[in-house]
């Protein structure tokens, strides 16, 4: 029995949890998958490692919608997941005392869409971690990847690998990866001429098949009805028009302004590897630099776009 399962069993009993949301081994190599534990004995199947890329905070708002009772829910969180939980509490999506936050140290998670793009149909039957390397092998091949090649983009510049707020913390806090400057991609992208930038977004968002996996994987997207699902009035068309796809992605990014925790769930969920992170990251930067705000760090600070200061900069106003 690992330290994780042992401690979680104790927490489950001590806290009288009704349900615990954690990770178990998935059905494919290098894929952890969310699981719901309903009794302490069940906890044996829990795991936590770099294959656990999903942001479980997503399920807290889901639970809220299907259950009217005040069940006590435990949740295993990485740094980014914890920030999402905190942000959801700030946004009054559920009561703080009904949630038991169990932090685990995160060394970065593997983005399945990156794995897919790298390996295509070569199938992994085995893998192991070797320091900063991931060695994957299959029937007729073995490949060694630098861990950074497969980690989610957000992980590479992650400053908060451990939950900033928690009730329990299992293991020793992880060191931030920070192998890359947080805004390097953005600086690089901004050097391009505007038309080229627009073309890039048209190309990326043009691939969108409107499956809404990015939206649905995002813990901060919890609206009862999304604007894309409104039919009276129908805000945007569904017929695959490029302009509609663009608007979906811009508005999605805007709705996450000052709320996004850069967990990478959207990018990992996209079946077509669309770059859904770039715009969100630029918005996150604007919020950080203009309003000095980082989402999900504490339970008191209101979301950046739901508050104001009288002396906010207004250089853009005519």
């Amino acid at each position: 029995m690992s330290e994780l399962t042992e401690k979680i069993k104790k927490i489950f009993t001590d806290e009288k949890l009704d349900i615990l949301i954690g990770y178990e081994k998935g059905s494919l190599p290098l894929r952890g998958t969310p699981c719901f534990i309903e009794s302490a004995e069940d906890a044996d199947k829990l795991i936590f490692d770099s294959t656990c890329h999903n942001n479980l905070a997503k399920y807290l708002t889901d639970q809220k919608k299907t259950e009217v009772d005040a069940r006590k829910i435990g949740i295993v969180v990485k740094g980014c997941d914890a920030r999402a939980v905190v942000q959801l509490v700030v946004e009054k999506q559920f009561e703080r005392e009904n949630i038991v936050i169990i932090g685990v140290p995160c060394k970065g998670v593997i983005d399945p869409s990156k794995l897919r793009a790298k390996l295509r149909d070569k199938e992994i039957s085995d893998f192991r971690f070797d320091g900063n390397k991931i060695i994957v092998s299959g029937e007729n091949f073995q490949e060694t990847f630098d861990k950074n090649e497969l980690l989610s983009d957000g992980c590479l510049s992650c400053k908060y690998p451990n939950a900033p707020q928690y009730d329990y913390f299992i293991g020793d806090p992880a060191e931030p990866i920070a192998s890359k400057d947080e805004y390097a991609d953005i600086d690089e992208f901004e050097k391009k001429p505007p038309d080229e930038r627009w073309e890039y977004f048209e190309k990326e968002y043009g691939k969108c098949i409107r499956c809404y996996a990015c939206r649905n994987a995002c813990p901060m997207c919890y609206c009862e009805q999304c604007f894309v699902d409104c039919s009276m009035p129908q805000w945007i068309g569904k017929g695959g028009n490029l302009s509609d796809k663009m608007i979906f992605h811009i508005v999605r990014a805007m709705h996450l302004a000052g709320r996004c925790v850069d967990c990478g769930a959207c990018a990992a969920a996209c079946p077509l590897n669309i770059d859904v992170r770039l715009l969100g990251k630029r918005i996150e930067r604007e919020v950080a630099e203009r309003f000095d705000f980082t989402a999900g760090m504490d339970f008191e600070t209101p979301p950046a776009l739901a508050t104001f200061r009288e002396d906010d900069k207004q250089e853009f106003i005519m």
Partner: peptide, 11 residues
């Protein structure tokens, strides 16, 4: 402020 920056960033 955020919207204007986002649109500018996109080109």
């Amino acid at each position: 402020a955020v919207l204007k920056k986002a649109l500018e960033f996109m080109g």
